[in-house]
Design a binder for these strands. Sequence first.
RNA 1: GGGCGCGUAGCUCAGUUGGCAGAGCAACUGGCUUUUAACCAGUAGGUCCCAGGUUCGAAACCUGGCGCGCUCACCA
Length: 506
Amino acid sequence: MDRQAGGARATLHHRQHRMTELAHPDRLEKVRRMRAEGIDPYPPRGVEAEPVAELVAAAGSREEPGPRLGETVTVAGRLLGLRDFGKLIFAPLAERSGRIQVGLERDRLAQWWPRRKLLDGGDLVGVTGELGHTQKGEVTVWAQEVHLLSKALAPPPEKWHGLTDKEQRYRRRYVDLWAGEGVAEVFRKRSRALSVIRAYLEGEGYLEVETPTLHPLLGGAAARPFVTRHNALSIDLYLRIAPELYLKRLIVGGMERVFEVSRNFRNEGLSARHNPEFTMLELYEAQADYRRMMEITEQLFERLARELCGGTAVSYRGREYSFAAPFERRAYTELFEEANGCAFDDEPAVRARAKELSIEDEHSDYWKLMSDVFDATVEGELDGPLFVTGYPVGISPLSKASTEDPRITERFEIFVAGMELGNAFTELNDPQEQQRRFEEQVASLDPETPGEVDLDYIQALEYGMPPCGGMGIGVDRLLMVLCDQESIRDVLLFPTMKPLVAADSD
RNA sequence: GGGCGCGUAGCUCAGUUGGCAGAGCAACUGGCUUUUAACCAGUAGGUCCCAGGUUCGAAACCUGGCGCGCUCACCA
């Protein structure tokens, strides 16, 4: 016990020591010298600068000069490194639109020149000068004025590897974003994807809404929740695991076409495909059904691929996926039978199969077990984009049953590269049937199903919900595919990490 | 929680059979007006994750711990 405590203390001390050393002594000395000379290393105002990508385009090449070659321009950004030739220094400057080279010549900067040694890689500067080229044809701003905008005390990481330690990349995303190849691009794409989604749905007559994140009851999915406390009300609240039941209340309310970009929270394990908080797009449309949801999925996926990947061919982990509509459809029941040699509702056969696959019957709930068998034998093999249709009623408590086969529902999930990217169905709007299914869930004692029936939701249905189609799309996972990233953490700016020093460890 | 792997300079990494702690980049000093990971010469920089153990001698071997990654389980 004592040894453990001692070890923990040593680790703590080690980490804090390292963190203070991020500020480099030489750079601290330069800051002192600047202040002594009356130079503010952290001036309050920036400079008015142009996006460098536009300047690079407008400079043209040496052979074919662009319209703005020779103009005096101002750029601002981070100096990634300094290549010093004595009376000439080249430095790449990075900002939001891209990179441009800055050329610092003694002859053009007579007054500033003695201060060049105060400059370091990583510093933020504003540079005014002539837009031109070097002998090798690189577009360069030949500086006439240099303004330090913010002194970097911490040196940038090694210049051609950047940060490679994944933990360091996620923890210090503020470095990774400019030091890591392609990192900023992923998050520009993420932003564009959300714009495309909003533009598409608004074009379809949808209204974007915001429903509560703090829920008094669990519902809309099966997952372990985060619990929090409201002091004034003296009640526990859950961080939402899904916005579904609130959005459907809005359909009852006559809003008819609504969507929400919802941050959901599930208190479960972390993996390459799971983060405790993740973004879900949920949408609901009155007078629509699951077939309309397929249409929306196809249109949205195709549009996103065109906007983000330049076409409908999407390359993910070395394989190509066609995002051109229509997508393939397969029935859940058929896929189940092909993979397992028995019908999904042949309980003795499925139980035997589960034993073969050493899948444990944890909740003594047959439908959960059957679903586990499906996940183990079918899901990972689905290349897609593929709609798996007709999920069994027993694992679809919020879906309307099929009119042709009462054992299954009007529901589908969309798969790409073995990953579930979305889940949609014709919404169950019969309040009595919904209450019956909720009561079954409560009776199951599964820790991941609601502990009590959401009577307010039943009451909403009692006022009458029109026929309705609804869908949830895992935005992060969809972006993994569109940006060709292997881990969900690579499409999240700040993925959930264990704190360096655990505040509460027992 | 299980399995596998990793932990050495600010960063990226070597370190042979157990025998003086190493390189490149970054930093510092000097040189250089066209580089693209500039180049040349020099200097400085270490809790080898922590604690025990084996040994004449441990960064290396053993035990325990800590941290992280991958993976499996979990995640309708």
